[in-house]
Computed example of a mutant assay.
Amino acid sequence: MTETSSGDLFARYCLPGNRYKKLLSGSFMRADRDQAVQFGVAMMDDARRASASELEQLLQGDWREALTACWLIGFARESEFRPELHKRITEGQVGHIGKGVAFALARFCGLSDAHVLKWYLERALSEPEKTGKPAMVSRCPAVCRGALGREAFARSTCLRWAVGSMGSGRFH
């Protein structure tokens, strides 16, 4: 099987409807219902269509390609990419792709994913100068609470603080 050129993959998966910009800004989540459904259907269709090789190529590309790859991986629940996504978080390689990594790990919904997201959230909240405004902070607590269980979740001061902050819009 021949590899598709990175330019072809970018044009196919990142550019339609300014997809990578919508994924970065999260604007598709603020769209009206019809637009949001249309966006989600297009993402799901492309997630089904993309091969593991294409997703790997996108993941190794620039931030626009990697961001799109993470979301496609999440939509397709391609858990074979779990180790790579965990590595990116633990090695601080999320940058612009944070929302996509968080989405994919939340879709996998495993205990190890919750632990990685919890670790990132605690780090992000304790070191904001290093992590900036972490894109996934506002959505991590629900994933962590669901996978870790209420008791383990409640033991984390940072997570309790984050949940309280979510209602204020501080991380949106």
Rank of each mutant, 00 (worst) to 15 (best):
E3V: 01
T4G: 00
L9A: 09
L9V: 10
A11W: 05
R12D: 06
G17N: 13
K21D: 14
K22L: 15
L24H: 12
L24M: 07
S25M: 07
S27R: 09
R30M: 06
A31E: 14
R33V: 02
A36T: 09
V37Q: 13
Q38H: 10
G40D: 10
V41Y: 04
M43V: 12
D45R: 06
D45P: 00
A47S: 13
R48H: 10
R48C: 12
L58C: 02
L58W: 01
L59W: 05
L59Y: 04
Q60N: 10
Q60F: 01
G61M: 05
G61R: 01
D62K: 02
D62A: 02
R64L: 01
L67D: 11
A69I: 06
W71R: 00
I73N: 01
G74F: 07
A76S: 13
E78R: 15
E80K: 11
L85H: 04
H86S: 03
H86W: 10
K87D: 11
R88F: 04
R88E: 08
I89H: 01
V94A: 06
G95M: 10
H96I: 05
H96M: 10
H96N: 12
A102L: 05
L105P: 04
R107G: 01
S112K: 12
S112W: 00
A114C: 10
A114F: 06
V116S: 01
L117I: 09
L121V: 06
L121T: 15
R123M: 13
E127C: 09
P128G: 10
P128M: 11
K130F: 05
P134G: 05
A135W: 02
M136C: 14
R139P: 00
C140Y: 07
V143H: 10
V143R: 02
G146A: 15
G149W: 08
R150A: 13
E151T: 07
E151Y: 03
E151Q: 12
A154H: 08
C158V: 04
C158L: 09
L159C: 15
R160A: 12
R160Q: 15
A162Y: 04
G164S: 13
G169V: 02
F171Y: 15
